[in-house]
Design a protein around this nucleic acid. Structure first.
Length: 425
RNA sequence: GGAGUGAUGGCCGAGUAGGUCGAAGGCGCUCGCCUGCUAAGCGAGUAUACGGUCAAAAGCCGUAUCGAGGGUUCGAAUCCCUCUCACUCCGCCA
């Protein structure tokens, strides 16, 4: 959520910045008109309330002195009715302003490159050697099927399409990757490990910006105000919701492993096979809360921490920057990390690292104090996938496949696999 | 699932015949004094949000907030209704 007072002060700045995201300037004009109406009504009703408070005090005084106050009481009865009507109006205007603010996307940072679509996202760096194969590399789902480590058919029987079931060494690989990633972030990068509930309430989802706009991308529990979390970002970012931290508490670095549930995953009709696009996948998520002046440095560090996972697993990747046209609604600046997938001869997103600045913090009322005497300010929030486990499995299967159908386990992962160095039929 | 109790400021905790209660008192915290230093002691201060005023900040004015929402009333922390949450006991359960 953007700051209405800043918008009031510098409407043109917001028009320009939101214009980079394709938002029409009239949206700002409408917002300011609604805001003006709200403030006018508010001033009026507050004036009446001040009158009522003063008169009520006078009534109390008169009653104590055994004087007659019936005239004042009659007058206030009328004022009370006016207040009720005006209060209703204030509420309506306030709701209108809030709805408009909640619907507005974040403003992109000035450093975000302009662009229409994902095709315009610049590549910032690449790492690792793309493997050369003496044979045609096969897709991860074919390898997995042949190794018997993923059972899609029965997952469909048990649940439905867009779900998988890991079996045997596949299940172990999932577990190993999650443990490896968590250990790396906790031991090397200074994160606090978190294991949240996979269900969150509506306030939390509003806090991170998933509601009210993106409710249909999530699974809602029938008859309950609960949703399956689309990412651990939701519980981790909301951990300090409605709290005021001290500056000493910052930065906060949370690493959380969770299943992630996405209802939209089936609609696009692509990646219908394999581990790329599922209604449920597992992910280790990194969440950072920090001082506003540090958030862009933190974004760089955070992105490196996510890339470190791929480097440790010896998987080639590249980092791209998301341009204005491809930037998500909550994002001020975002890097995607894409891992090389040989079978499709392309890089695929395996992590997103984003600085939200105070967009989420304002929604979640997540603040800090620089000193005991200073006023609360909003923290900046960031997160990054470190990493999506299913896509990491896919990347290992495809990049480490051999002609005989076996798959080499990355060295760093061998201890987590009980010493197994290779998966064979 | 059954029965019961409760929800007040950073924390603890007063406050029910409705009226000067944003709310006693204590603790904590901040600043100052005092002391060779620390502790103790003394004094002052110490919520948040929004609106207005101001170039802006401070300040000042106003409104709201005693779990949330609604109601009664000129006036509600105090009365009524609904909801939420927490705790205790019983049952069930990994």
């Amino acid at each position: 959520m953007l700051d209405i007072r800043s918008i009031r002060q510098e409407p043109d700045v917001f028009k320009r910045k939101l214009g980079r995201k394709g938002i029409s300037p009239t949206v700002i004009d409408d917002l300011l008109a609604a805001d003006e109406a709200w403030r006018t009504a508010l001033a009026e009703v507050e004036r009446l309330k001040a009158l009522r408070n003063a008169t009520s005090e006078a009534i109390a005084q008169k009653k104590r002195n055994k004087e007659d106050a019936s005239e004042d009481i009659a007058r206030m009865r009328e004022v009370g009715g006016q207040i009720q009507t005006l209060d209703e109006k204030v509420r309506e205007h306030d709701a209108a302003v809030r709805d408009m603010l909640l619907a507005l996307p974040n403003v992109p940072h000035d450093s975000v490159p302009a662009g229409e679509s994902e095709a315009d996202n610049p590549v910032l760096r690449t790492w690792g050697d793309i493997p050369k194969f003496q044979f045609t590399p096969r897709a991860h789902f074919e390898i997995a099927e042949e190794l018997g480590i993923v059972d899609t058919e029965r997952a469909v029987k048990i649940t439905g399409s867009r779900f998988v079931l890991y079996k045997g060494l596949g299940a172990r690989l999932e577990r190993a990757l999650a443990a490896f990633m968590l250990d790396l972030h906790v031991d090397k990068h200074g994160y606090t490990e978190m294991f949240p509930a996979f269900i969150a309430n509506e306030d939390s989802l509003v806090g991170t910006g998933n509601l009210p706009k993106f409710g249909d991308e999530m699974f809602k529990l029938e008859g309950l105000p609960y949703y399956l979390i689309p990412t651990a970002e939701v519980p981790l970012t909301n951990y300090y919701r409605d709290e005021i931290l001290s500056a000493d508490d910052l930065p906060v670095k949370f690493a959380g492993y969770s299943s992630c549930f996405r209802s939209e995953a089936g609609s696009a009709g692509k990646d219908t096979r394999g581990l790329i696009r599922l209604h449920q996948f597992q992910k280790v998520e990194l969440v950072n809360l920090c001082l506003p002046e540090h958030s862009y440095a933190v974004l760089e560090t955070l992105t490196r921490e996510c890339e470190a996972v791929l480097e440790a697993l010896e998987l080639p990747y590249r980092r791209i920057e998301i341009c204005t046209g491809d930037l998500g609604a909550k994002d001020a600046k975002k890097y995607d990390i894409e891992v090389w997938l040989p079978a499709s001869n392309t890089y695929r997103e395996i992590s997103s690292c984003t600085n939200f600045e105070d967009f989420q913090a304002r929604r979640a009322n997540l603040r800090f104090r620089r000193s005991d005497t200073s006023r609360p300010e909003f923290v900046h929030t960031l997160n990054g996938s470190g990493l999506a486990v299913g896509r990491t499995v896919a990347a290992i299967l495809e990049n480490n496949q051999e002609a005989d159908g076996s798959v080499r386990i990355p060295k760093a992962l061998v201890p987590y696999m009980g010493g197994i160095e290779r998966m064979t039929k």
